[in-house]
Write a protein that binds this DNA or RNA. Structure first.
Lengths: 237, 237
DNA sequence: TGTGTTGATCTTGTATGGAAGTAGATATAT
DNA sequence: ATATATCTACTTCCATACAAGATCAACACA
């Protein structure tokens, strides 16, 4: 995605900052936002912050209720399932179109990524980044890396849910082994086997999300039509 | 997609108006936009127009060059191909997951849609709408209609390109017959056959786009990194 | 005690003015 | 005639002010 300007606008920085805080659960699902408050925190005016929130709302990570307030959207199982379906469809289609020898530099990048995943003391945030990159590189093998952003923006809910899974004490090393298995199968030309492994891997992640939901139902959207209300709280100034 | 407010904001109307004009080629690829000009035409202030343009830029239908101007993005073959890949992956995956009897109301909707497509004197704009609906309904058969918006927003370039194909004197009745064939095969439970037909159908549309490109290269992006310039033109006031 | 009403204070939506950057048009000097 | 500097007109980006709705605290009053 080549862009003329490096996109160093204030809107861009506000968007990245807020999105990062949402994905990393620093801003929890259901948390109230406020254009004014965010603007003050980020040292900006309301305009770029507001524009960033509009983009996040379009992405589904934020819900805006006019004259009431903006909120970090709760995890919606339906949306998560849709994102899961979309991702599975695209990634499997990518593997299906693997033909001939993959580009050596892409293979090297994947190897380096897997090696990084297999380092002994890996923290969860880093793993999340590596995991993201792994799937993107895998899609790139089929020459359709250009479709990644479309998937990436559609799967905001999925990312957060996966972050929730990583936040618990769930051993994520299992994921690493699954990654390695998918990669080796694809590289060996055993496409059907790779597809099968990848599908199982994605389903594993999804079932973990269901576990999280059982433990923390308050982070999930129960009634999609519920409208939040405001409340004035006393603050010790 | 249930939303609290009906989204009757001015931003919404500006977004819909401009998007419609772009998709329907009323604003041609490469055309210069302007927050001021659009605001005046639509009878709004610059703010909602600007916010609408930001969303369209995020969608890829508009390119914004800071301090230079905003433009309707040209058709980018790479992006069209990516959108094509994405769409094919999702729609084929949908057919793959067809299990058991489809819901009668969805089948009825599809039948009605096909019947409408087969009316004798059908204009192109109507066909475009019906075509859009057909593919959305088809995806709905697998219970994953929720994934449609993600595909829809990612395929802006594809939509425009298809509109270009419809603008020419290409007989689109061919598409109708292909639609019907896909539907009948899916309904008869011949999933593999349906997948094959759908894939051929999507590829047909794509090859048509290449024909358009040969006839109207100016609507396509040649150098993705090219930056537009401004020119002052004399206008008879 | 209960009830309606008003005001204060929050929210997002919109309008508007200026800052900063780009580049063609034009005047001026060589 | 050619090169250079300034002017001018335009753009997007951002800050700010105001408008309009929503909700709650406080108060008047029965």
């Amino acid at each position: 995605m080549s862009k003329g300007p490096g996109q160093r606008s204030r809107r861009r920085s506000a968007y990245q900052a807020v999105r990062r805080r949402i994905i990393e659960l620093d801003l929890e699902p259901g948390a109230a936002l406020s254009e004014n408050e965010l603007a003050e925190q980020l040292g900006l005016s309301r305009t770029p912050v507001r524009e960033a929130l509009i983009l996040l709302a379009d992405e589904g990570l934020v819900q805006v209720f006019p004259k009431i307030g903006s909120f970090v959207s709760r995890v919606d199982p339906v949306r998560v399932a849709d994102a899961q379906f979309l991702r599975e469809a695209v990634e499997l289609a990518g593997l299906e179109r693997l033909e001939g020898e993959p580009a050596p530099d892409q293979v090297a990048a994947l190897r380096a990524n897997l090696a990084a995943q297999e380092t002994a003391d890996l923290d969860r945030a880093t793993f999340f980044v590596l995991d993201e990159e792994f799937h993107r590189l895998l899609l790139g093998l089929s020459g359709h890396a250009g479709s990644w952003p479309a998937v990436a923006t559609a799967k905001g809910h999925l990312d957060r849910a996966r972050m929730l899974a990583l936040r618990t004490d769930r051993p994520f090393q299992v994921y690493v082994r699954e990654h390695r298995a998918v990669f080796e199968a694809a590289l060996a030309g055993r496409i059907d086997r790779a597809r099968e492994l990848l599908r199982a891997h994605l389903r594993t992640v999804f079932s973990d999300i269901e576990d999280i939901r059982r433990d923390h139902p308050e982070l999930f959207a129960a009634d999609p039509d519920a409208v939040p209300t405001r409340k004035t709280v006393a603050v010790w100034a």
